[in-house]
Nucleic acid binder design. Structure first.
Lengths: 194, 194
DNA sequence: GTAAGTATACCAACTAGTGAATATACAAGC
DNA sequence: GCTTGTATATTCACTAGTTGGTATACTTAC
């Protein structure tokens, strides 16, 4: 009935996640999602009132796992804040090389839905990006809180730029350059402009 | 017959440009493009062998105008390289506020076509981004050429991040923050880490 | 027996792309 | 000045398939 403890609903969201990410929301029919879940379309429409609803559920389901991935990479790295952030980008450069990587699902969905600004899926994507930015600011706020917020925003910009550049060029050098720039900004702002 | 001097072809590309940018390539039918151009679909298919071809022509047509826009903003600004680059972002923050602004057409198209990597339109988008990066590197290369190239890449990353963040948040503060970060990087790298 | 969940079958609208005919322009033959 | 031939350019009508969404009925579990 509710969110988590519904196996049928979860099967549908899982199927939607795989298909929407792999092919894009516009190129995947609700029939295809239902079939992938081993259910009929009518069942899908029992659990979701529309395709747009299903798209929103797909992105909402990706918020926590993505945040945990990033935090895991940050915490596992040795060194100061600059090195820890650069480690995120190093890991990103690795995963974005994988042929199944098809960009950041949140940004891609926002791009596909640019013509319908109030779409619940775009809002879910914005919430995720804000959550990530807030987590990053808190992870960086050993020194000045205001400066950590500014830095977090700049790093988010570099990361979204890296996702976009990687998607269009398929060249991981852009991700590495973004990591390098992020580390430079951290040193320039946190460590006395060095 | 050829590329430029074909009014019918131009009418089709102009109509495609307006519709594809406003609504996204997947949400616009070739019928809609033909109708907007005041022609029949069959005529469209006389000039373009497929919808994919038309999409590629749309992005190829945006390369030069976009570059000229950016170069114009850069050259019109007063001050050093940091100020001139920041001026690009200031202008960008203004135009991205407009309700008709729907993201960077090159990035949005790459996002929509992420499932078909070799698509000619994605290649056209990648060429444009490379052209912009090269122009920026040459515009910054008063000092060290290698450093100008690195800087140009980092600024491109910030700009694409700004486009993406603006698309998902509809908040121009992200564009301003990107401009601020770009100026900081220029000063840190070109002007003796100040 | 009632309510939640699932299935079959269907719809009207829309999709990219095509076959065959036609219109226009311009040249050559006489 | 006509006719004929040919290449370019455009239209009408069509196909074959897909789309999001629904009306109706069946099956469980309690």
């Amino acid at each position: 009935m509710s969110e988590e403890a519904n196996p049928t609903r979860k099967r549908l969201v899982d199927a939607a996640t795989k298909l929407f990410y792999a092919e894009g929301i516009g190129r995947v029919s609700v029939d295809a999602v239902a079939e992938k879940a081993g259910l009929t379309k009518r069942t899908l429409y029992y659990h979701f009132k529309s395709k747009d609803d299903l798209i929103a559920a797909y992105l909402e389901g990706r918020d926590q796992p993505n945040l945990e991935q990033m935090a895991g990479w940050f915490e596992a790295a040795e060194g100061g804040a600059d090195k820890k952030v650069e480690a995120i980008f190093t890991n990103l450069a690795r995963v974005t090389r994988h042929p199944k990587w098809k960009g950041c699902g949140f940004l891609r969905t926002a791009a596909e839905l640019a013509a319908t600004p109030g779409h619940p899926a775009v809002k879910a994507g914005a919430r995720h990006k804000t959550n990530f930015e807030k987590w990053l600011a808190s992870a960086l706020s050993g020194h000045d809180v205001a400066e950590a917020k500014m830095l977090a925003r700049e790093i988010v910009l570099l990361m979204d730029g890296a996702f976009s550049s990687m998607l269009i060029h398929h060249n991981p050098d852009y991700v590495a350059a973004a990591g390098h720039a992020a580390a430079t900004l951290i040193r320039a702002r946190m460590m006395g402009k060095g």
